[in-house]
Design a protein around this nucleic acid. Structure first.
Lengths: 239, 239
DNA sequence: CGGCCGGTTGAATCTCTTCAACGTCCGTGG
DNA sequence: CCACGGACGTTGAAGAGATTCAACCGGCCG
């Protein structure tokens, strides 16, 4: 976070940004950040607001600075499936394509740094590291998607819910260490979102959550706040 | 296919290769092909043979020249999920990582062009187009994975089987045009593989196949050969 | 206050799985 | 040569897990 402390060239917004040294911005020089920040604009999205629409034209990309974004796809009859969750400092948008293959909506309140497609694509031409970062994020998303395919295709309802809670517990706080055995967080998704993520119904999700609660694997207060006293006990339920 | 016809520098194996102008090789100059072909070696894999093992060290990458490769992941108790199918001229392997996150096995007889990790990674340093191709293939795989998540999470057994047949019908023959309404092919997967791809049991797959057959959506001979007289009728069953 | 959204719980239903039997094909070995 | 065993596939009957339908609760906003 302090690599730029002696470099007054770094734009103020970037110097203060959590994501400055991560995500694609981590591959940019101070000069490049200056160039980008001229085109970029920070904006805030309320839960439910769309950042990208499935198979719709989009002329901007974004970096997530805070909050959780849900990626989803829909069948013609309205059935919906969440195909990914994104957290800071993830890059949002489909490189080199004007159409996004997915819908992206703010799950919680989201702050994002948006910039035009062309600005990034020009920068890439001169900075191969940037393309490398994009490739690496895409590979990470591919790994996550494939991991989730196993959950969707082969796990039971209770294993799915446990897997979801574990995913959130380990991703929502970028600062928490991997060795901690306890976790506490607010669920960024409604029961209905969770159901769409897991390929289940709301009722099934609700039943499995109460079961995990009565089995003392988790505590729930206010419907949204979850405490996991022992992550190992939770992961034992993931199959 | 004839772009190299006046260029005697292109290695003979590459000039004859179906994938010469596609996949990552399409981004290589004749000189680069020469350099790569010094390190590469074509090999053949029988159905069931492994090309990569999940979370195992791997020092080679490969391009698929012919056949179908299945990518899979396994849970600790043995439950298995196929997370992707790859066809010529797909690139196989995880760029910039020594461990593959998935197992890759030949489904049908596969011919592949293998080369050491280092050879490709060195080449990438001098040829950004190559990295672009890798990014594009990764994005394509990500899109496919997310499409399949919808199938796994939200479709019924019969919709899943129809979706699978449609996927094979439209991917197994690289030459068929997208406008053709009829398709005929040999299934590259056993019923058990299909079940693992769809998150179902073999019995359910078998029942849904016979149902599609008695409904005259498909014809099956020899358990493996499938004729789809009307792809539109099939896609009506995909949900 | 009334209505709506998000969530939980119960009972009935249904889809898919499980368990079991059986058929075919094919390579092996007595 | 044919009998045997195993891999692959289909079909039937019983069972389990998730869905569907319905009722209900609490909080919030107009």
């Amino acid at each position: 976070m302090s690599k730029d402390i002696h470099n007054s060239n770094v734009p103020r917004v970037c110097a203060a940004c959590e994501a400055r040294h991560r995500g694609i911005c981590g591959a940019m020089t101070p000069d490049e950040l200056v160039a980008m920040s001229k085109h970029s604009r920070q904006s805030r999205f309320a839960p439910g607001e769309a950042l990208l629409a499935e198979s719709a034209e989009s002329t901007t990309y974004a970096n997530i600075m805070r909050g959780v974004v849900k990626l989803s796809k829909m069948l013609s009859d309205g059935r919906q499936q969440l195909v990914g969750l994104q957290f800071a400092p993830d890059f949002l948008g489909r490189p080199f394509a004007s159409e996004s293959p997915v819908t992206a909506e703010a799950a919680s309140t989201v702050e994002a740094c948006r910039f035009p497609r062309a600005a990034l694509e020009n920068l890439i031409l001169h900075n191969p590291d940037l393309e490398r970062r994009l490739l690496e994020q895409t590979l990470k998303e591919l790994d996550e998607a494939r991991d989730w395919m196993v959950t969707l295709g082969r796990k039971t309802a209770s294993e799915k819910v446990a897997s979801f809670l574990f995913l959130i517990a380990t991703h929502i706080d970028p600062l928490r260490s991997a060795t901690m055995h306890k976790a506490a967080f607010d669920l960024p998704l409604t029961r209905s979102d969770i159901a769409d993520f897991l390929g289940l119904t709301v009722e099934t999700v609700s039943r499995q959550l109460t079961r995990l609660r009565t089995d003392n694997i988790i505590e729930i207060t206010n419907n949204r706040h979850v405490v996991v006293p022992d992550l190992d006990a939770l992961s034992d339920r993931m199959g």
